[in-house]
Design a protein around this nucleic acid. Structure first.
Lengths: 200, 200
DNA sequence: GGGGTCATGTAATAGGTTACATGATTCT
DNA sequence: AGAATCATGTAACCTATTACATGACCCC
């Protein structure tokens, strides 16, 4: 039903999306990604771009469109979306929007094993985390208001609004967790300590 | 400051954690992961376990402890945590708990390029998503109440509670997004349509 | 005593990241 | 005119996933 996709790297989605507007060469794609701030949404390293474009080409989703040059710079290969690529872009987006997929946030993994740290330290660390989360929150809201001020329509800020929602949820969870740990009614402390003294 | 870690795969964290309780061989680690339901927190495929254990061994974080066998089954190598491994486990957890790291949820990427789909379809897809999210929510709450009933302390369910928080945040965001799209005061429709008719 | 499943891995392949290379422009 | 940065990639290396192999044990 799923995972039939030839290219799974989300960077491929970005490439398909940009190429759906006009043919471009890989370097220009990189520039576009940088300038549009897509690095916040998609993990992007300059090397992986060429790899992904290569994969897309082998999969028949993009094809060489022309080869050009500007000034005396090296020649570059311009790629264009194929019909299959256009279909793949739509289909991929449909899947991503319509069906949530199981994810693995780092904090989930950390919480699963956090009892290996002494509880006092965990409280401190969580408090430090709240601090960073606040700064991240300010960064996002700043970015949103700046963009709106510069005339960017809300439609193109949805991903940051979503991220903000996740961040607030995390903030709340961490806050409540700290409170629970400090609450004497919480009987974890003994449990946790046991776990630590017990050396079997 | 970061990324000095020799092993970055979160599965390595799980291995360090289990080995901090007692020496085990890779297959037993796999069994423990399965039985403890850690697959929900950490991406785990049977092949990667051996790879990660190999990496940990090369990094000096675990070492061969003995080689044993049970019945006439093939011999297996039992690994134990080294002192460096114990330090690494603590240090890694400290980092994960104390410092949120930038993440890339699939929906963030999707939202960044969602305007490549026609708006009507997006509404439908989002509605379908809500449905799946409800089911996932029921699954998590079921798992939590079952575990509590079986006597598992809350301390060992934190990761599911966190996940629940994220899920609720996503649910709310998607709901509001659907509502905004349906609201006639939202002027995206034209913008979106323009983007679609415009073929430049 | 033959067919499944469990136990224990190895090998092949594909994916992704990092480092490096090379010539053009631009800055001071 | 030399230094820094931009443009355009290539190559090497490490990570991760998938497929496969082999013998025990277990069930009927």
């Amino acid at each position: 039903m799923t995972d039939k996709r030839k290219v799974t790297n989300p960077l491929g989605l970005a490439v398909l999306s940009y190429l759906s507007q006009e043919p471009m060469h890989p370097y220009a794609l990189g520039r576009a990604l940088r300038e549009h701030g897509d690095a916040r949404s998609i993990k992007y390293s300059p090397g992986s771009l060429y790899m992904v474009v290569g994969q897309l080409a082998r999969a028949g989703l993009v094809a060489e469109h022309a080869t050009g040059r500007e000034g005396q710079r090296p020649e570059h290969t311009v790629y264009a979306l194929t019909d299959a690529g256009r279909r793949e872009l739509r289909d991929w987006l449909r899947e991503l929007v319509g069906q949530p997929r199981h994810e693995y946030p780092a904090l989930v993994a950390a919480l699963a094993f956090v009892s290996a740290l002494p509880p006092g330290e965990v409280s401190e660390l969580l408090t430090a985390r709240l601090d960073v989360l606040s700064r991240q929150r300010a960064e996002i809201t700043g970015l949103i208001t700046d963009s709106l001020a510069r005339g960017v329509p809300e439609l193109f800020l949805l991903e940051e609004e979503y991220r903000l929602g996740l961040l607030d949820a995390e903030y709340g969870f961490v806050q409540r967790l700290i409170a629970r740990m400090a609450d004497p009614a919480t009987n974890w402390i003994t449990l946790w300590a046991d776990h630590h003294n017990d050396n079997r």
